[in-house]
Amino acid sequence: MSNRDNILNRLKQNTLSEPVKIESNVSSFVWSKDEKITQLTKCITAVHGEVHHLTNIHWIDWLNQELPKRGLKQVLIGRNKVTDEYTYKADKSVTIHHYDKPIDSWKDKLFNQIDVGLTTTVGAIAKTGSLILWPDAAEPRLLSLVPPVHIALLDANTIFDTFEQAIEELEWAKNTPSNALLISGPSKTADIEQTLAYGIHGPKELIVLIIDK
């Protein structure tokens, strides 16, 4: 008998009566788009994140204004339609790097030379102030993690009320991504005297650009 069979056999010895599980109630509340933006902004700014609701300005123009001001020069992006546009329109002070080779050969550069990781998002969750990322071949997993600043582009029309709703509407269980993330602020710790400190391992700054045309 294998370990596996021993364990499973022991578990099967006690059959419990048919248990009742309280299922998630997806439609418990419904927010308007503006309410969702307000709630998301409130949550993310409360944990030291930055949120900009871009209605009149294109996000590339926003980056071209802001990045030079903040001295951010080395920007790492994936390869997809949205971010490709940036490659051509980025401010001259910015150098664009593409995350298009297996990481093994250039880990040192990723860890030590990049200022900003720019990603898109699958959507967001208003209630908890969380961005939903499904990293893939075009936008790899470490892109949102290793650079000290993470800038995330969020389409205002893809904000869900709750995690439950996102799971249902994205048909998450059927379309299970290799890696999925909820990101709800910059990296932080309270391991020393319960005092909050930001940027312990991941990005020190999280900047969310809500694109709302």
Binding site: V47, Y99, D100, K101, P102, I103, S130, D136, A137, P140, R141, T176, P177, S178, N179, A180, L181, L182, I183, S184, G185, P186, S187, K188, G202
Partner: peptide, 15 residues
């Protein structure tokens, strides 16, 4: 801050 859901190792086209 992070909720990390891992379902697969690196896929052939992943970086």
């Amino acid at each position: 801050t992070y909720f990390n859901m891992i379902s697969r190792p690196r896929q052939p086209d992943e970086k």
